[in-house]
Design a protein around this nucleic acid. Structure first.
Lengths: 205, 205
DNA sequence: GCCATCATGTAGACAGTGTCTACTCATTGC
DNA sequence: GCAATGAGTAGACACTGTCTACATGATGGC
């Protein structure tokens, strides 16, 4: 829960919505509910956003920043001289953000709720992908699939972690795989993708 | 578009909803809209389903059957004696279904729209995952990550293709990766996962 | 044959939604 | 001092899913 005192109405609406998503999830969020919790009338949000989808796009943009922070935190303890390990660690940062903020994470990829043409939404989403691309480029320089197109390789790796996070939040993985520990599935996916790199990671004298 | 003449009202509602999803996508679907298109009053669907979410769960169950058929069609031309190639081919069946029926595919993984406790929904979803597990088991017998837990390995592979399909439908992949051909990304993801199997696929005498 | 029962469909009501509009009020700039 | 603007309120509107009362038609028991 974030303190919203001292903020302007616009920012208070954004952070109220974020708090709602963290507390109640994606279900039941709406313009009137956000306005109620922010202590303003149901028409007030439309003075700051042209529609609900614009407000939610602003919330999603904050979510992309928080996602990048979660990835940063995950790779922080991994030494710079092991770029593949840093990339693998980023996976945990991604799914852990999805796990700790399922409402915001779900919102970020819902085009029917977010105005995906919003400039801030596009900018923050692009920055988050850029963070991944940088990690992938370093890994490629260290011998990880060096011939692949960096953005495409990034997209494939992104999809793997995004799929794990999405299916986990949907509740589809636990009853089918029998595995309730998402970290274990990430480790397995990482071992599929990273452990068998065509270029060996260690020097083999 | 499926002919709905001669069907009972219940089935006509399900197939009308499926036609709507194929034609218009997930946005704007609703109980009253389905009833209008099926030519019945807005209250009629509730005589056959306790709520809209139950009707949509029935639509999703049909979707799981269609998904299985798409995967079956994709592996059909691949010979039985190459289980890893069959598994790789299944990936294309999965994403191609998502591409050709984005509305139904999106619905199938939306717990806020579908009643995920519906018996038929659970049964068909489980059957679809079982189809994947069988393919994975055969691949493991042929040397593909033979030590992994089959259901967990299946979940990880499912997540990769599910993530590609989801992000593609969200429109996130094209502007970031620059790649508009989803099949190319599936090939790349497959090459990440399959090409570098720890056990060589060919005999190395 | 008749009558009760039940399944099915209709129409209206109700509470809820997002958005639009008219109105109020405080602040700002000239 | 006053016009103009930004911000907030309250009510309306069309729409939604669900509930209820009612009509109708088929079925089964006597």
């Amino acid at each position: 829960m974030m303190a919203t005192a001292g903020l302007g109405t616009r920012d208070r609406l954004v952070f109220t919505a974020r708090d709602y998503l963290d507390a109640e999830g994606l279900d039941g969020i709406g313009l009137r509910e956000i306005a109620r919790r922010a202590g303003v009338s149901h028409g007030a949000p439309l003075r700051h956003f042209p529609a609900l989808s614009a407000l939610l796009a602003a919330v999603a943009a904050v979510g992309f920043r928080d996602l990048m922070a979660s990835v940063d935190a995950a790779i922080l303890p991994v030494p710079f001289d092991d770029p593949v390990a840093r990339l693998a660690a980023a996976s945990f940062g991604y799914v852990r953000f999805a796990q700790s903020h399922p409402g915001v994470f779900g919102l970020m990829f819902r085009a029917d709720l977010c105005d995906t043409t919003d400039a801030e939404y596009i900018a923050e989403g692009g920055a988050a992908f850029g963070q991944l691309v940088d990690l992938v480029r370093d890994a490629q320089d260290a011998g990880f699939h060096p011939d692949a197109v960096t953005t495409e390789l990034s997209g494939a790796l992104w999809a793997t972690m995004h799929g794990l996070a999405s299916l986990h939040l949907h509740g589809a993985l636990a009853p089918t795989t029998g595995q309730t520990d998402l970290d274990a599935l990430v480790r397995l996916a990482n071992s599929l993708v990273f452990a068998t790199s065509p270029q060996p990671l260690e020097d083999t004298p």
